[in-house]
């Protein structure tokens, strides 16, 4: 197995949910280095639950999650921080941080006991600022930023954490179409240029089809996973929503509202 074909994360027969309620079962997928993968599905199907389970914020109910050939639950907390970074839907608790300070927090897994930044840490912060076009905003406080800018800062922080796997929960909500496309485009670049494996949940199926290398459709049944064009051919998107409201157009890869 060559380095590029190494599976960063592989999930088998995973079931997720809470003690009292199973949300989704039989989720299977695996991702190599440098892949951008979207998770789509209707509201309440368990996209965020899956992401929280992968990020180890909540325990899985069954199945296995292998992160770099090692069970997810066997990683120690500090070790996990070097393998996996997250961008969550919750806002940072303090918006009084500057952009640069917030991104630099991503370097915590590598810094000494008091959090001092080495030359290498500073370089990583600078790369992240550059990659997400944040140089001009570096000294701005987070409460001064627009939603799109803040989202870029949070993703830049995850990039500065320098982990092979990045998980993002709905990174494009609250953004207009332009900024949705911008964020996803930047994620695609990050995945392909920096060889990061990126998994995000989204409602933007149209955009995901255009930009993702792989898509996982959570439909509550067999949860198909594959390349977007294969999934379109196999007519999986058509079954995603009840057909009384929207129809999937296989030719354009978009949804149309029923007239």
């Amino acid at each position: 197995m060559t380095e590029s074909k190494e599976h960063i994360i592989s999930v088998e027969k995973l079931s997720i949910g809470y003690k009292s309620k199973v949300v989704t079962t039989s989720i299977d997928f695996s991702l190599e280095r440098g892949i951008l993968c979207g998770i789509v599905g209707i509201n309440g199907i368990g996209k965020s639950t899956l992401l929280r389970t992968l990020g180890r914020f909540q325990p899985k109910l069954g199945g296995t999650i292998m992160l770099k050939q090692k069970k997810l639950e066997d990683h120690s907390q500090p070790q996990l921080a070097k393998e996996l970074s997250v961008v969550l839907t919750e806002q940072p608790a303090s918006k009084n941080l500057t952009v640069q300070e917030l991104i630099a927090l991503g370097r915590q897994p590598y810094t000494n006991w008091i959090g001092g930044l080495s030359q290498k840490d500073k370089e990583h912060v600078q790369h992240s600022l550059d990659a997400f076009l944040l140089n001009d905003l570096r000294s701005s406080k987070c409460h001064e930023l627009s939603d799109g800018q803040l989202q870029r800062v949070l993703i830049a922080r995850a990039m500065a954490q320098d982990t092979p796997l990045i998980l993002l929960d709905e990174p494009t909500t609250h953004l207009d179409l332009y900024h949705k496309a911008q964020i996803l485009k930047m994620l695609q670049q990050l995945a392909h240029q920096n060889q990061k494996t990126i998994v995000f949940t989204s409602h933007e199926i149209d955009l995901a089809i255009q930009l993702c290398d792989k898509i996982l459709i959570l439909d509550g049944m067999d949860n198909p996973f594959g390349e977007p064009c294969d999934l379109i051919e196999q007519r999986h998107f058509e079954r995603l929503f009840p057909s009384d409201m929207v129809q999937f157009d296989t030719k354009t890869g978009t949804f149309k509202v029923n007239k």
């Binding site: 907390q77 070790q79 969550l88 608790a93």
Partner: peptide, 9 residues
């Protein structure tokens, strides 16, 4: 926030 702190190890 707590979740982010946790994800930072």
């Amino acid at each position: 926030g707590e979740h982010y702190a946790q994800s930072l190890g």
